[in-house]
Structure formats: structure tokens, C-alpha cells
Design a protein around this nucleic acid. Structure first.
Lengths: 347, 347
DNA sequence: GTGAAAGCGCTAACAT
DNA sequence: ATGTTAGCGCTTTCAC
């Protein structure tokens, strides 16, 4: 059995109050008693009971993170950064996966962990902002990658329209003209895909081109297989082939490159490819992948900052924050102008 | 403020005892009171306070998962599976990262979360079995991918020697003779790399070949960059080039293929490559990667089973379990015999 | 079938 | 500077 404050107090011949003070440094204790208590503490290997502490404090020190999938490269990386940012604030993270399903998102918001966490960070997929806010109780919440037009909660995201615009412009600048957009997700409610599509179209318009609906290929998920399949579809359709693709995620892009290879389409010579997320695989893929790189560390940091603000100022009436984090376009082999086959190592 | 049992009891005009019974179905309650209580429960949107429950029960319902990195493809996938297996048992998982550092492993075992979790699943990297058992307190613990010669705790792993043997034999069967092993980690204490090396050597011996120390290349980590660098080293050394590589992880293998490509070495024609872990990237890489595929779902399931056994039978004297989960060799493009350039989709 | 009350381990208000 | 104690919300023993 683990020893409690009472045990330590008995051993040191003092009251629990004093032991508590020593443990927390909350009041002044004479040097002599402190030493005696400390010794008892060590001898008994005292560890505070977190449940009791939480019960008293009304806080658990736990933060819920709700994402589609832990093992997705993008969310995995983000989760790792969030865990570390949380650690710096003495918080512990609980990760839940929704697999992009609306019912799971609902369940996780209301049910399973809602009562136990002090705050929630959620990357919504199937639910839109208004439903999110209905589902969530009074628990402070931060939305990731969600535009949230109604401003129901804090949210942290890159400027998806701008980023997609830049990616598309980059392809235009390397001389591409029939640029496909693979990644719209009509069934998705979180708005991200829409914004990327808007940015893509904006860039085309600016270049005097008219977006061709046949080049906008929707996908059911952002996984590699979905990208591979969408690319097959695009190639099988007949009509003039695209000379570039802007994929709404790196995973899609990797699937697209896989299909290109299977069909004898050379990347980047016949087809330039740009992705989104800057996952590690893209740095080592063949060819390496040009991509939009969001500042993930900053996403993690800012999200936790938002949560901290709300948790520590309970009655606060701070309006929902809308935070935009920086991104940059990382140009690699998959979009290099033909004939410029650089062999540099991954960057 | 969230409502408590007491609030509900007051509203329903019964005692807390009765409300508790309704919530937990723990004793028989008359149909009439049950209905009244249920109504009060709904009206107040009652949610049990987990901290209080834990304090009473002496359990938190939390399981700690200690892995090198969440965003590693292998551990990410495993973590996802563990989270789901835990969910099925009404447990919640807390994930911590060690980055493969000994001090972090120690800290996480003793310190931060040890007092709060009911059990610990750890994939040790820098600590060996005996130190692990010293560090951990009385908390039930399961080791992943660790041979644990001293049998200090339950552990779940594939048969690494056998798996490495099979991978090497596969390369021998496709006619390769100078097979390199990239992945030994002398600084690692968990034994995994050693076992894979042993299996590799055993296969060579069986084929009548003598392992060439120059073909065994140690690495500092199992990441892609480490693989890329090790391959560069191997090629720069001069001497006869290898015609195959057995990499101790898929990530290493992907890095190796990257270097091969940069150096104009064709895979699989000039160099066959086999990895370990069966991560998703390997299915979509170019060429797709032959690999040893551990049954990850079963690893997760069995690990939780071990924990459940110990947590629910506290005084139990069950000796530490040693569980071996199945694996299989998945042959893809990177090791196809030269001249058999199948273009089939990823499998 | 239901109520009263003790107690899990901790913190903090109140006392000395 | 330190002791005493109420009470956080819950489960459960004991009593009726």
C-alpha cells in the first residue's frame, strides 16, 4: 500500500498540515521540522495521490486531444508536439481517435472523457463548428484547423486559402497549366478542404485561367490509398492529362505519385506534385515531395496557450480567439522544372 | 458548476445512496424511484466525477504508455491500436515519449505519471530489463519488444531472431550473397537489435556463408536519416558493394533506398532491400518495401490482457508472462528478383 | 428498497 | 510555526 500524508505525519511526529506544507512549500516551516518531515517523506517513498488532489482542486490536470488518427503522420507529429507542450505546463494529454466519424466526435465530446479533462483540443472532421459547440459542455475547447465562422471557440490554424494559393502559384510559375486539385471532401464539415480549394481557384483566376471542374477530384479520406485511387480515376477519364497536381495532403500526394509510377507517368517531368502538411515521408519519398509546411510546433504551443488562458481565468469573458500560425512552401524534387533533376539530399 | 449526486438526490427527493444505485445499477431499485431519479439525472445532465470515483476505488482507470516517439510510424500505429484496445476495457491511455533517452525512461517510470496510472506499458529503449524493474514501483508493467532474460515483468514481442532469419533467408533465396545488416545499436540496452543481428547471422551460416563484419553497420537511431547515412557510409567504404540489405526497421530501409537512389544504385536490380515493422509508408514507397510484418493488433491486445490480469487480481502471484506474437514476411518490389519488375498495386 | 454516515487523501480555513 | 478539522464527490457498510 502506498503511504499517505497521514502516514508520513505519524512517522515524523507532526500533523498532516505540516507535511502538506513541506510537500507543496505552501507555508513557512521551521528548518528543523522540514528536515524531519523530508526524511520521513523519503523513507516512506511518499507520492501524492493525484485523485485526491484533483478532487480537492476541482481540476484533473488532464487535457483531451481528439484527432482523426494517431498513426497518421501529420496528426502523430502534432500529437507528439502537443504532449510535450503540455508537459511543460504540467499537464497530461489523453489522446482519442475519431477516425473521422461524426458519431465518434460526438461521443468523445460529450461522453467518455469530457467529465475528466480540464480542457479539450479537437481537430474536427465530420462536425461543423456549431454542432461542436452544442456538444461540448462548459469544458474549455480549442479547435485545430477549423475556420469556425461562428466563432464558438478558440481556434488555431494556418491560412489555408493563402497556402493553397501559394502552392498553386508555384506550379504555375514552373510552367504548368493543367493543374488538378485532388482532395476536396464534400462530406467533410470542417471547412479545411473548401478553403484549400478556394485558394487553388484563386491562384488559377489570377493567372487568367478558368478552373476546370474535371480537374477537381474529390476524395473520401486524406489517406494514400484515396490519393492513388483519385489519380487513377483522373487518368482513366480520358481527355487531356494534367501536368500538375495540388494534393490537399502529403499522404494523398504520396498515393498520387504511386499511381503515377504504376502508370508510367514521370514525376516531375510529366507531372509536378505539391502536397500539404510536410510530413517526414515526403522528405524521403522518391521523388521527394514539395509541400506546404505548417508550423506545427507553433500550432501546439498556441493551442495550449489558449487552453491555459481559459482554465486559469475561469470566469473570464475573453471572446473566442482566432489564431493564424505561419506556414511556408518547401520546394523539393516533385515539382522541380523538368530538366533540372537535382540530386541533392533531402532537405 | 456541474451537479453532483447530492444535487440529483435533492431534486429527486431521495438519498444519494439511491441515486448512486441507479447510476451504477448496483442494487435493486423500485421501478418508480428509478424513473424519478433518472429524470433528475437527465434534467441536471449529471456526469460522475472521475476524481472522486478514483479516490474511492483506489484506481484511476488510466494506463500509461511509454514509447520512444508518438510520431514514429511504427509506434504511432501501435499507440492507436493500444488506445482502442484500452477503450474496449474502459481504460484511458496516457502517452509519453522518451525519445529513446535513458533519463526520460527513468523519469517516466518513477516520476511523472507513475502515481496516477493503474498500469504501464513500456517499449524500453535505453534501459535494460533489470534497471526497468528497479525503477518501476509496484505498478503492473508490460514490456514491449524486449526479451527480458531475467523475467522481471510480462513482455510481448515477436520472435526477432526467427523473423530476422526469415528475412535474410528470403534475400538468399533470391540469389543475393553480399547481404548487409543495417541497424545494430550497440548503445541500445533493450536487446532487440542484438536479436535481429543474431537471426541475420544464423541465416548466413545456414547458407554456408561467413558474416562479414564490414557489412554490419551500426546506427544511432532507427530513423530514416540514420539509414540514409549508414548506407552512404557503406558505399563510401570501397570494397565490393553489397547486393542486398536487411534493415532493422522500415524507416531505416526507406532512408537506405533514398541514398541508393541518390547514388544511382537501382533497387531491387542492384540492391535488394528488406525492412522490419510493415509501416504504411513502405506500402506506398517507390519501390514498395519488402518487410517483416509483426501482428501489431495482437501485440496491443495481448499487452492489455496482461495488464488486466494483474490489475484485477492484485494479490496474484502469476509469474511474468512471455508472450510471442506472430509475424510474417511481406514480399514487395524492393526485393523482387531482378528482371521481374511487376507493377502491381501496393499490397 | 432506501436512508444515514463513514471514509478514500488531500488542501485550506480556522485555531492556537 | 504548527495542530485540528471540514469537505471535495463518490461508494458502501450498517441499519431500518
Amino acid at each position: 500500500m502506498r503511504s499517505s500524508l497521514k502516514d508520513v505525519a505519524a512517522r515524523a511526529g507532526v500533523s498532516v498540515r505540516t507535511v502538506s506544507n513541506v510537500v507543496n512549500g505552501s507555508a513557512s516551516v521551521s528548518e528543523k521540522t522540514r528536515a524531519r518531515v523530508q526524511q520521513a517523506l523519503d523513507e516512506l517513498g511518499y507520492r501524492p495521490n493525484l485523485a485526491a488532489r484533483s478532487l480537492r482542486a476541482g481540476r484533473t490536470g488532464l487535457i483531451g486531444l481528439v484527432i482523426p488518427e494517431i498513426h497518421s503522420p501529420y496528426f502523430g507529429e502534432l500529437a507528439g508536439l502537443l504532449v510535450e507542450a503540455a508537459q511543460r505546463r504540467s499537464w497530461t494529454v489523453i489522446i482519442d481517435q475519431t477516425h473521422g466519424r461524426a458519431d465518434e466526435e460526438r461521443r468523445l465530446l460529450k461522453g467518455t472523457h469530457a467529465p475528466i479533462v480540464d480542457g479539450l483540443i479537437i481537430s474536427p472532421w465530420a462536425l461543423d463548428a456549431s454542432e461542436l459547440s452544442e456538444q461540448a459542455g462548459p469544458t474549455p475547447m480549442v479547435l485545430l484547423g477549423e475556420r469556425d465562422p461562428r466563432r464558438v471557440a478558440d481556434h488555431v490554424a494556418v491560412d489555408n486559402v493563402l497556402a493553397a494559393d501559394e502552392a498553386t502559384r508555384h506550379l504555375l510559375e514552373t510552367g504548368r497549366r493543367r493543374i488538378a486539385a485532388i482532395g476536396p471532401q464534400p462530406e467533410l464539415r470542417n471547412g479545411t478542404a473548401e478553403q484549400r480549394l478556394a485558394g487553388y481557384r484563386r491562384a488559377l483566376h489570377r493567372a487568367g485561367l478558368t478552373p476546370d471542374p474535371a480537374l477537381e477530384v474529390p476524395v473520401p479520406t486524406l489517406h494514400r490509398t484515396a490519393g492513388a485511387r483519385a489519380m487513377e480515376e483522373l487518368l482513366d477519364r480520358g481527355g487531356p492529362a494534367p501536368d500538375a497536381v495540388f494534393a490537399f495532403s502529403d499522404e494523398l500526394a504520396l498515393g498520387i505519385m504511386r499511381t503515377a509510377r504504376d502508370r508510367g507517368v514521370r514525376v516531375p517531368e510529366d507531372l509536378a506534385v505539391v502536397g500539404f502538411d510536410d510530413i517526414e515521408d515526403g522528405r524521403f519519398s522518391n521523388p521527394s515531395l514539395t509541400t506546404v509546411s505548417p508550423d506545427k510546433a507553433q500550432i501546439a504551443e498556441r493551442a495550449l496557450q489558449c487552453l491555459a488562458d481559459r482554465i486559469y481565468s475561469p470566469g473570464g469573458t475573453v471572446p473566442p480567439q482566432r489564431i493564424t500560425v505561419p506556414h511556408r512552401l518547401v520546394v523539393r524534387e516533385s515539382s522541380r522544372p523538368a530538366g533540372n533533376g537535382s540530386r541533392s539530399a533531402a532537405s
